[in-house]
Amino acid sequence: MSDLNQALADKYKGNFLKEVIDNVEEGDRVQMCMQCGVCAGSCPMGPHWEHTPQKIFMMIRANKREAVLASDSMWMCTSCYNCIARCPRELPITHIMHGLATYAKRLNLVPKTQPTAKFAQLFWNNLSSKGRVNELKLGISLYFMNGFGEGVKTAMANQKLGLNMLKTKRMAINEAWGGHSVKDKSGFHAMLKKAAEIENDTIEANSK
């Protein structure tokens, strides 16, 4: 993986914008940002993360490859879509943020202790196994994300909420065993595999 990172860094030496255009979903739109700062001002996460979308896009153009790919920003985006709604240049900011996160992960550059990155992985694992999000399992895995002891504590604290959800049929306990899946599960897996292959091939090719 780090070889891939190195290969790409070498390949696009001095032109990170091009690397983003070629490898990040909707990355070609980054060049259209006019640095007005509306997204930065609209983002609820603005004060809480390292770089606002505006800054991230400027950094891409300023060739700050390492700083961008190691930033916590794209991992903090809550997908509220405020920025997309407001960007005068109509950049798909949220999608670019997620595209950058995906690319950083592929290159193994995710900040090690980033909790939202861990959550994103849990979510993906949950979703990709059966093609549907199993909320109960996702909740449980989230509780136990930081170890067994932590998990029990959190579960106990939320006991009442859980019971209420059961009562009002907001949670199905039988989902804990198996849970239901998409109709054609193997087809779904094949599709994911193919998509991953295509993505891999593109990036591999771009790194050459």
Binding site: L17, M32, M34, Q35, M58, R61, A62
Partner: peptide
Amino acid sequence: FYRSGQNKGVTFRK
């Protein structure tokens, strides 16, 4: 014209 410049990949830095 500015937008077209951006579209063609001209980098603008303040």
